[in-house]
Design a protein around this nucleic acid. Structure first.
Length: 423
RNA sequence: GGUGGGAUGGCAGAGUGGUUGAAUGCACCGGUCUUGAAAACCGGCAAGGUCGUAAGGCCUUCAGGGGUUCGAAUCCUCUUCCCACCGCCA
């Protein structure tokens, strides 16, 4: 959520920033609601001030044994008036809050201006795509031929976009999870957590999934709990409604969790393989940082995620999302895209973002500065990495002419020494 | 699921209708003392909103909602959460 006061005081700049990301927000409505709210507040607070003073006067009269009936009667009318105004304010505030929850974050000044993903900027790339002297196969064909990805049975157990991993496929998935967690905890200084996979609506509102993106979420209606679409949700909310001490910042967490997405708007898109699943695994990186450091921390976080791909030996590039392609809650985002031979292009395996105070304001996460001021913290997160897509990239990039796949060296110790996946 | 007990500031913990935004202790910050530290002593220490150029004023907040009252942390009511015991259970 944006700072109401900031919006009020920088209306035209906000209008411009929102336009740059292609968001249609009626800021005149904001001005109207905000103005009405403050108008009513001034009015009711004056009345309350009178009420408080008169209350004390009544108390004094009663203590002195003097009749206070007249004042009491006047107060009765005053209280009626206050109640009416309070109700009106609550109504206006509810509308205003609802409005603000639907306004996306403002892009950081360093974000390239653009309309959609075509305007994203390639920041850097690492490695080279493999040079095959044969026709490479897709990961779904490879996975099926090795009997490590069972798409048919995944559908039988649930529905489309669910996959059953078997044998070395399941082991490779697990090896990737462990490899990534080990890297981030032992070498990058993240604290490993394993959070609840079901969370309450407060968490979803805190990180920005609700109220706007409810149709993307799986919900357990009987309990009003949601399956998380990313570990970002529970991990960021760890410190909801807390005031953190400045000297523990930046706080860095990593978590492996399954993730669940309804992919409501993606019918017919990427239906083959494991690229777009309703359930997938992910290792997530989450940071809480002081505002003046958050952009440095974003660079570091992105590098931490890149390191995974480098150690696996997968060619990738780093993309800076343009204003028009930015996610709802983000101020700035880098995507890591790995080379995927079957698509003859790059596929996103990580999205690293700085949310500045957008989530912190929603989730009420603050910190105390050295001079004891309380301020909203900056939150960041990034995938480190999406497991399923990484597995797919390994199958495709490390396949050989004889139909087998070489397991990256860093994973072998996590797989009982296995070196090859083959028939 | 059943019964009972709870929810107060960063933490602990008083407070059952009228200077209680909230005692006291701890923690924290500043000072005195000390070669330094500790102890002791003195002082400070909630957040949010709103008006104001500012100084500062005012309002709100004792889990959350609703109610009683001139006035609610205190009374009533519903909800949520926590704890204990019972039942069930990986």
């Amino acid at each position: 959520m944006l700072d109401v006061r900031f919006v009020r005081q920088n209306l035209e700049a906000v209008r411009e920033a929102l336009r740059s990301r292609g968001a249609e927000v009626d800021l005149d409505r904001f001005t109207q609601l905000d103005g009405r709210r403050r108008e009513l507040l001034v009015e009711v607070e004056q009345l309350k001030s009178v009420r408080n003073r008169t209350s004390e006067e009544i108390a004094e009269l009663k203590r002195a044994g003097v009749d206070a009936r007249e004042k009491v009667l006047a107060m009765r009318r005053l209280s009626e008036e206050i109640k009416k105004l309070d109700g009106e304010i609550a109504g206006v505030e509810a509308v205003l809050t609802d409005f603000m929850l639907g306004v996306p974050n403002l892009p950081h000044q360093s974000v390239p201006f653009g309309r959609d993903e075509k305007d994203n900027a390639v920041v850097r790339s690492w490695g080279d795509p493999p040079a095959f002297e044969f026709e490479p196969k897709s990961h779904w064909d490879l996975g099926t031929s090795f009997d490590i990805l069972d798409f048919k049975r995944g559908v039988k157990l649930a529905e489309s976009r669910f996959t059953l991993l078997k044998g070395l496929g399941a082991q490779l998935e697990r090896a990737l999870i462990n490899f990534m967690l080990d890297l981030h905890t032992r070498e990058h200084g993240y604290v490993e957590v394993f959070p609840p996979i079901l969370v309450n609506p407060g968490c979803m509102t805190g990180t920005g999934q609700l109220p706007k993106f409810a149709e993307e979420l799986y919900r357990c209606a009987d309990d009003d709990l949601y399956l998380i679409p990313t570990a970002e949700v529970p991990v960021t909310n760890i410190h909801r409604d807390e005031i953190l001490d400045e000297d523990i910042l930046p706080l860095k967490y990593t978590a492996y969790t399954p993730c669940f997405r309804r992919e409501a708007g993606a019918a017919g898109k990427e239906t083959r393989g494991v690229i777009r699943q309703h359930q997938f695994n992910k290792v997530e990186l989450v940071k809480f940082a002081r505002p003046e450091e958050s952009y440095d921390e974003l660079e570091k976080l992105t590098h931490d995620a890149e390191e995974v791909l480098q150690r696996l030996g997968l060619h990738y590039r780093v993309i800076a999302l343009c204003t028009g392609d930015l996610g709802f809650s983000a101020s700035k985002t880098y995507d890591l895209e790995v080379w995927m031979p079957s698509y003859n292009t790059y596929k996103e395996v990580s999205s690293c973002s700085n949310f500045e105070s957008f989530q912190a304001r929603r989730a009420n996460i603050r910190y105390r500065t050295e001079n004891k001021k309380v301020r909203f913290i900056h939150t960041l997160n990034g995938s480190g990495l999406a497991i399923g897509r990484t597995l797919a990239a390994i199958l495709e990039n490390f396949q050989r002419e004889d139909g087998s796949v070489v397991i990256p060296e860093v994973l072998r110790s996590h797989m009982g020494g296995a070196e090859i996946i083959g028939k």
